[in-house]
């Protein structure tokens, strides 16, 4: 009786031994696995696709409109140096110099979901690079002001009067830019000119309504 029990015990033991040794070997194998290589943020293929898209750009006109409308979701980030920021910047812009973009104190301005972040610099070169770094890290809803402050001054602050041969839209755009320029403090804004512009906007809206009526 006792002999039989003993032999059974040995049999069971060898079975378990085999499994136990196997497990230990596999566990030991873990030490020799190559270091896990993974991409931080997004992977290169996705990055290329994002770079090629141009939907990150926002025009100066779009930006001016959003500032004038006092869009609460807009957050302007000035990626230039502190001196340049102190000399001139867009209204309510926050200064995040390019080199400090990923610093703990500043990164939270860019890496969040509550605002549409618009990056700008003198041209759009630095802003675009900041966007690319942010995109690599997987930051969402970040935009770049196309043309930067140079374009801002050429279009909003000092717009070019359109040629007579240009289409009506060019004149409308000019009017909008002039009005926007006044909002940002160009010239001595007089009440009559200020009134004239909202009137135009109203007529445009009426037109749209008529189209819908016609479509009945």
């Amino acid at each position: 009786m006792s002999k039989r029990y003993k032999s059974k015990k040995i049999l069971v033991k060898t079975e378990y031994k085999f499994l136990a040794v196997l497990m230990i070997l596999m566990a030991a194998g873990l030490f020799f696995l190559p270091e896990k290589i993974d991409n931080e943020g997004i992977n290169p293929e996705e990055f290329v696709l994002n770079i090629l898209k141009s939907d990150r750009y926002i025009s100066t006109d779009q930006l001016a409109e959003r500032i004038i409308d006092q869009d609460p979701t807009l957050l302007l980030i000035d990626t230039r140096s502190e001196e340049e920021y102190n000399a001139f910047t867009l209204p309510n812009a926050v200064n995040v110099p390019l080199e400090k973009l990923l610093d703990e104190d500043y990164v939270s301005y860019i890496d969040q979901d509550n605002y549409d972040v618009v990056l700008f610099s003198n041209d759009n070169y630095f802003a675009d690079q900041a966007w690319k770094i942010g995109n690599r890290k997987g930051f969402k809803s970040v935009y770049v002001l196309k043309g930067g402050l140079n374009e801002w001054f050429n279009t909003i602050i000092n717009p070019k009067y359109p040629d007579e041969s240009m289409p009506e839209t060019a004149f409308k755009l000019y009017d909008f830019r002039k009005a926007a320029g006044m909002y940002f403090g160009v010239g001595a804004p007089k009440s009559e000119t200020k009134k004239a512009i909202p009137k135009k906007v109203i007529t445009v809206k009426k037109k749209k309504k008529r189209v819908a009526e016609g479509g009945c």
């Binding site: 230039r80 340049e84 000399a87 001139f88 003198n122 041209d123 070169y125 402050l149 140079n150 050429n154």
Partner: peptide
């Protein structure tokens, strides 16, 4: 690169 067109 990044040259301001004027003194803003």
């Amino acid at each position: 690169i990044e040259k301001p067109a004027m003194n803003f």
